[in-house]
Write a protein that binds this DNA or RNA. Structure first.
Lengths: 125, 125
DNA sequence: TAAGTGTACTATAGCAGATAGTACACTTAA
DNA sequence: TTAAGTGTACTATCTGCTATAGTACACTTA
C-alpha cells in the first residue's frame, strides 16, 4: 500500500501525505473509510508515530480526512476540491520547474505531453 | 535577471541553478557567454559566495557551464542534452506528484494541459 | 605586480526532520 | 467499571542540510 523511501530527500511525512492522497484518488481509500491508526501505521512503515501524526495533521488541514476524538481517523465524506491561490501558484511553479528540467534533458513539449498522458493512464485505472 | 526568494523552502543554491537554466533556455544566456563571476553574482544577489559556488558546481556537473581555471565560467558550447535514467524518473515523480496535487484541487487533465501550454508560451518567447 | 578568476578548506549558526518518551482526554468493548 | 485503543500535545535529543564567514592557494590577465 505505502512504501517509504528513507533515502529520498523528500521528508517522510510528505511521502506519507502524498501516498495517501494517491490512494484516495485511485480509489484504494473511499470516503468514509477508516484510516489505519497512527500507532498502527507507524508500525507498518517502521517510522515514528509523530511522523505519521504530522502527515495526518496535514491531510486534515487540507480537509481530506477527518478525526473523531477517541475513535479514529476517516476519509472525508464531504471533500470539496477548491483552488487556493497559493496552492495554484505552487503548482504552476512546480510545473514550470519540471518543464525547464525536461528541456535541459532534451524533452520537448510533445514528449512531455506523452509522459503526462502515461501518468494519467496509470492513475485513472 | 535573477531574483531570490529567501522565504522559500527551496534552498537558495537550487533557486540559482534553476534561474540560470531558465535564462539559458530563454536565450538570455547563449552558449559561449561569460557568466558573472562567483564573487560578482554573490554581491548582486547579496548571498554568500559559497552558495553561488555550490550552484555553479551543480551546473558544471550537469555540463551546462564550463570553467576555465583563473579565467572564469562560461555557458557550454557543446551541451548535448541527454536523458539520464535517474533524472527521468525524478521528472516523472515530480509530474505525478503535481498531477495528484492538481487532482486534489479539482484540476483535471484538460485544465492541467492548458496550464502547461500557458507556461510554454511564457517560456518560448 | 596587482587584480580578478575558481577552488578548497575550516568553523559556526540556524533550521527542519525524525526519533524517543511521557501524559492526557476521549471512545469502545469486555 | 475497567482495559485497550484512539488522537493530541508536549519536551528533549540527534542528525543532516543550508547558509554564512573567513582564509588560503593556484591560475590568468592587464
Amino acid at each position: 500500500m505505502i512504501n517509504i523511501d528513507a533515502r529520498s530527500s523528500k521528508p517522510i511525512f510528505e511521502q506519507v501525505v502524498y501516498k495517501i492522497k494517491e490512494n484516495i484518488i485511485m480509489g484504494g481509500l473511499s470516503p468514509g473509510d477508516k484510516m489505519p491508526s497512527i500507532r498502527e501505521l507507524s508500525k507498518m512503515l517502521t517510522i515514528n508515530p509523530n511522523t505519521v501524526s504530522k502527515a495526518y495533521a496535514e491531510l486534515e488541514r487540507q480537509k481530506l480526512i477527518e478525526t473523531i476524538s477517541g475513535k479514529g481517523t476517516y476519509v472525508s465524506l464531504d471533500y470539496k476540491p477548491k483552488v487556493d491561490e497559493d496552492r495554484f501558484r505552487k503548482l504552476r511553479d512546480v510545473l514550470k520547474d519540471a518543464i525547464v528540467e525536461a528541456h535541459c534533458m532534451g524533452i520537448g513539449q510533445k514528449q512531455l505531453a506523452e509522459i503526462i498522458n502515461g501518468i494519467y493512464k496509470d492513475i485513472e485505472r
